[in-house]
Structure formats: C-alpha cells, structure tokens
Design a protein around this nucleic acid. Structure first.
Lengths: 167, 167
DNA sequence: TTGAATTCGTTGCATATGCAACGATAATTT
DNA sequence: AAATTATCGTTGCATATGCAACGAATTCAA
C-alpha cells in the first residue's frame, strides 16, 4: 500500500477547517440578526471603506464570482441597504453605495464581529500575529507564482475603487 | 461616522481568503483530472486512513453536513470508487470502504496534492510551522469555549471509526 | 417486554452557486 | 469613422447546498 495520506495533517485541510469554523461563527452575527449571507456581508463590509464601488471593484477586493456579487448587490438593494446607479462616466459601470439603512446595519454588526475577532486574538502577542500573517503572505506569494492558481485578490483595487467614487 | 471597518485586516476574512485560494488551487488536482468535488475528495481522502467508516464517522472527521457526505458517498459509489454495505452489527450504519478504483484514484491524486503542499511550505522552517499551527489550535480553543460556535471536528472519531471497520 | 426517545442515513425542497452566454457599452485597431 | 475587440453586469441553466422531515433501526426507561 502506498504511503497513507493523513488529511488531518494536511495544511490546506487544516486551513479550510479553521476558516470554515470561524466563518460559520461569524455568520451568527450577521445572518441570525440581519439575514445577511456571506456574500452580502462581504459586499456591505467592503462598501464601508470603499465608499462607492462597481461590481467589478467589489469582485476584485472580495474574491467572489461576479455573478455572486451581482446577486448579493441585488438582494442588498431589495433590502434597501445599498443604492445602485449607472455611472455617468462609463455606462457599463454601476456605482454602488451604502444607504443610511445599510450603514446602520453595518454599525450594528461591526462591534459584534470585532468582539469575536478580539476573543480569537486574546492571548496572542503582536509578534505571534505578525508571524502568522507573514506565513499567510508567504502562501499567497507561492500561489502568485503558480500558473494553476487563481489570481490573488487585488489590494490595489481598494484605492482604485475609491477613485471611481470620487471622480 | 463610526470607526471605518477594514475588512482586509480582519482575521476571519484573511483566513477565508487564503483558505479559499488554496482550496481552489488544490481542486485543480482532483477536479480537473478526476472529476471529484471538494466533498468527494474529502471523503475519499479520509477513507484512505480510516479504512472503513460510516457516514457519521466521515461527517465528524470531515466537517461536512451529513447530507453532503451522504450525497458525496452516493456519487463516489456511482463512480465505483467506494462500496457501501449495511453494517451487520447495527443496521442503521452504512460501512463505506474504498474500492480498488478508489484507491487507484487516490494514489494518482495524492502525489500531486502533496507537491502543492510542499511548494506552499517551501522556505518555511519547522519552527515557523509549529508556531503557525499553534495559533490555529488557539483559535480552535477559543471557539471550543464559545457556545455560538459549531463544535470542533472530532479528532477521536478517526480512531473510533477504524474500530468500526475492524470489528 | 413494551413504549418513548435517540441515532442514522436519505430525500424533498427552497435557495445558492459557478459557468457560459448575452446585450450593452467602451476602447482599440485599421 | 468603421469595424473589431474587450469590458461590464445580468441572467439562464444545471448542479450543489443546508435544513428539516422522514422511515428504519437501536437504545433507554418504565
């Protein structure tokens, strides 16, 4: 028999498990109380610091399929948490922005998710966290060099997007 | 305006992004070549060292919904990669085991996913990885103490399951 | 031993998802 | 300027997903 494969010690599996578990815990804060899906939450949260953004902007920052973003935005619009309108500069683009209700919803959720994060981080030193994030960055670097990997989420999209809103 | 929420620096988000990216990269190895879904891959891989297991065993080790496991097993059975038969000791249980074809498929996939993992780990010291996993364990510990979190994947299930097979 | 409660796996159903195709618009090429 | 190409967002479709309900089997209690 070949070398037995121990999934439990497999890095991608370990990462998937903890990420899923945290994600599910977090969802308690935005789904149970406000009926938001993961996609809707990510869109909302990104709009918080993007200001105004197009579907594409959100897609880049958020690592979601564009159809998923489009539908999440649609549901958020139905829920009156965001407003869409066609860009004057480029009619292909849709400018998406939080409404007062969207902002209020975010303000209700953010302290709770922050508290979850704080609890997770409790007892860890800044040095530990820096090392942790350094490894995650390393993993991203490896994937960046791998032609079979999907492109990394574009961090520059954030600044580009805020320009869209400002111009 | 409230303290702006920067999703990009939010631990759960960072973890979700890297985990999704790695997962997607890994899927290239088992989906493109062998038509396996994530769920099917996890079932197959767990069977590799569980030997024989019930749906529930797999569910525990794998962190997947039982219906998802059930369906994944069903598809794997259709593909003749696993065999199911009702337990003689407890007729509620289904004993699931790899077929020769399932084992062959695994043997074809495992070296490739291992290589992906090796590339990811390249350049990281054992000490770094230990620190990394220690933090993941810490995160699990925090969630273990959180009544709103889902229970942790049961590592003991692995040994329990292999007993199922042996008895 | 009989009846109630629990466990296991499957299935129905509503919804979510990824992918490809599409119409509309804009940018590029000739 | 006209034609080709590329980009953007939406939608149709097939499939996947989570949840609850269910039937069958077992365990527990009286």
């Amino acid at each position: 028999m070949a070398d037995p494969f121990n999934l439990a010690e497999f890095l991608p599996y370990r990462l998937a498990l903890i990420a899923e578990r945290i994600s599910r815990r977090l969802a308690v804060e935005y789904e149970r109380s406000h009926g938001l899906s993961v996609a809707e939450w990510r869109v909302l949260a990104n709009l918080s610091n993007l200001g105004t953004a197009s579907v594409r902007d959100i897609q880049l920052v958020t690592n979601l399929e564009k159809s998923r973003v489009s539908r999440a935005v649609g549901r958020l619009e139905t829920a009156k948490m965001v407003k869409k309108h066609v860009s004057a500069q480029d009619a292909r683009l849709v400018e998406i922005a939080l409404t007062a209700k969207g902002r209020a919803t975010l303000n209700a959720i953010v302290p709770n998710v922050r508290e979850v994060e704080n609890r997770l981080l409790e007892g860890l030193t800044a040095h530990q966290m820096a090392a942790f994030y350094a490894i995650i960055d390393h993993l991203h670097d490896v994937l960046d060099a791998d032609p079979d990997a999907k492109e990394r989420v574009d961090k520059r999209a954030a600044s580009a997007a805020s320009k869209t809103g400002a111009s």
